[in-house]
Design a protein around this nucleic acid. Structure first.
Lengths: 334, 334
DNA sequence: TTGAAAGCGCTAACAC
DNA sequence: GTGTTAGCGCTTTCAA
């Protein structure tokens, strides 16, 4: 019955017209007699003909696939997932579909995925950079394929960049704690390679120094367990801090666990960077500086689609502000 | 400088060999003299040649793109996101990449996305069905493109199906509550179209009836707010239940909020279907019947890849068991 | 307005 | 081992 799917030629034969006429109808050209259009449409329907995008792409001049690539830290984490959803929502009305992949902070994986998506003729890329340098993009990507960077600045390749107010958000958190009378505020975070972490630390240090307070920095925390352990150590010191600023999601949760274990959750103040579900249901509710991943995704997708439409201008830097959400843990006086 | 990217012909000219020899080298065929291989490799590198997958696909017999489509309820929700990640992890070592999309329980959207992915020559699909019938797949998909269904059974198209033990999990939750002495256990859930919800309700009803207990069913709950309101109503009745079984994530959270507001969180027992982050940090910890989205994703991807490898056998039904995780709220005696 | 021929970049089939 | 020829399904170019 089916020996491969039907081609334009099959449709042409079935409709009694030439191949080219079918092509014209399928592509919505208006220079075809209505009677022929109808015959072709009928044949298309009865044969269940679907145009072969690859073949069309090969011959066409514009060579668009209406597909973009989205390279995230980890498609499974809630932050990435919300960003992903926002990108899809912007792309959907344009008939643009999304290839996705997780980089796990691995620069090799970043380049591998870029190459894979380039081979699949993505019209553009949205990238949360894992590596320190994106110069390779010039080699992997055909000319004219735009890239928008998200959450971290890129190096070596031009593109719009969507960033959160990392330093500003951290500064706001620390100022909030100072406003409640705290004079000894500790920073818990991941000081690693990642530019994001450094910016948050800078925000903390700036405010603490301006206020003439002693900085306490605990770095190198990558997961909940490490954060919990470090927080326990910190609070058992002879001069423990009266307030904590945790620079990331998982670290905040580790700190909450530690405070519980010591029964200090109503005694030591806490503000975390990044919101998380149910933060309001804990006791006390956890005060956070929330990012807006959905807005970041929307902004990135809009910037990319604009470039794909031929918009050429100097790469822009788009900054999405953070919001401090007081829920109790950050309003414990010092 | 760049007038389009280089083709195999450019490489052949640059290396002083024939087009076909380049093709052989690029495709890793072993019947080429080492000296020529080296010359071709060099030319490939210096010209930054990248093979044109579309053209290759067009001519090749097997016509594979090493791309699969993943159609989820909502890429932004944690359950879908974890499933997505597991699929990616299975596909990655095979050099298979993933097109993703959200259906939002909309059958039209389901068909639209299937068509879009088929046009992009996905080698296979993993689908969380939104609509009641998947018969259209036979028209939209080329012959031989396998589909694996996840989380819900499909109709009208053959394919492996990965399901959670919905009825069994619900039954276990209710039995757990009965084991703690409860005789009046209410069901809160979404009774809508969705097969999943009906199965959970069936699990509840089966156990309750077998135990000779009166069923109390509150349905039509779609979000946290509705669940909170309904729970409040329920607990203010003259004969309130002593235990709640909430059939879904968001409903569980709504119920938790309601119990808090009434100060009953240590008096009324609660078991929820679906785990959620921080369930253990609440007071009391929330006992749940946990699904395993990662295992569902792995199973689906493995089944799909096997079919893509030519495995032909009767479609299988793969059932991923649930796990009851006691954390406190389900162990309050009745 | 419609059609015939050429060819996009690549690989299958068959020479040499 | 290597090269030549034909052609995948479609759009371009140009002629009718």
């Amino acid at each position: 019955m089916t020996q491969g799917r039907p081609t334009m030629n099959d449709v042409a034969r079935s409709a009694g017209v030439s191949l080219k006429t079918v092509s014209r109808v399928v592509n919505g050209e208006t220079t075809v007699a209505p009677a022929l259009v109808a015959r072709v449409r009928e044949a298309v329907a009865s044969l269940h003909y679907r145009p072969h995008l690859g073949a069309s792409m090969l011959r066409r001049n514009d060579r668009r696939t209406s597909t973009i690539g989205l390279l995230l830290t980890d498609v499974g984490n809630p932050f990435s997932a919300m960003l992903h959803r926002a990108v899809e929502d912007e792309a959907r009305p344009r008939g643009v579909y999304v290839l996705t992949g997780s980089l796990d902070e691995d620069p090799d994986r970043e380049r591998e995925l870029v190459r894979a998506f380039a081979r699949r003729h993505a019209d553009g890329l949205i990238l949360v950079p894992a590596g320190p340098d994106q110069g390779y993009l010039a080699l992997e990507l055909p000319d004219g394929v735009p890239v928008v960077f998200v959450d971290r600045p890129a190096a070596g390749f031009p593109g719009d960049t969507v960033l959160t107010g990392n330093a500003a958000g951290a500064a706001e958190a620390v100022r909030h704690l100072i406003g409640y009378g705290h004079r000894h505020i500790a920073y818990l975070g991941d000081l690693a390679r990642i530019a994001t972490a450094r910016r948050r630390l800078r925000g903390y240090l700036g405010v603490v120094e301006d206020a003439g307070l002693p900085p306490t920095v605990v770095g190198g925390l990558h997961d909940t367990a490490a954060a919990e352990a470090s927080t326990l150590d910190l609070l058992r010191r002879t001069q423990p801090p009266t307030a904590l600023f945790t620079a990331q999601n998982l670290i905040t949760i580790g700190a909450v666990r530690a405070l519980r274990r010591l029964g200090l959750q109503h005694a030591v103040a806490l503000v975390g960077f990044d919101d998380f579900p149910l933060a309001d249901l804990l006791d006390p509710g956890v005060t956070v500086v929330a990012q807006d991943p959905a807005e970041m995704g929307r902004a990135a997708a809009r910037a990319l689609l604009k470039r794909m439409d031929g918009h050429t201008a100097e790469p822009r830097e788009i900054r999405i502000p953070t919001t401090l959400i007081p829920r109790g843990s950050g309003e414990i006086p010092g």
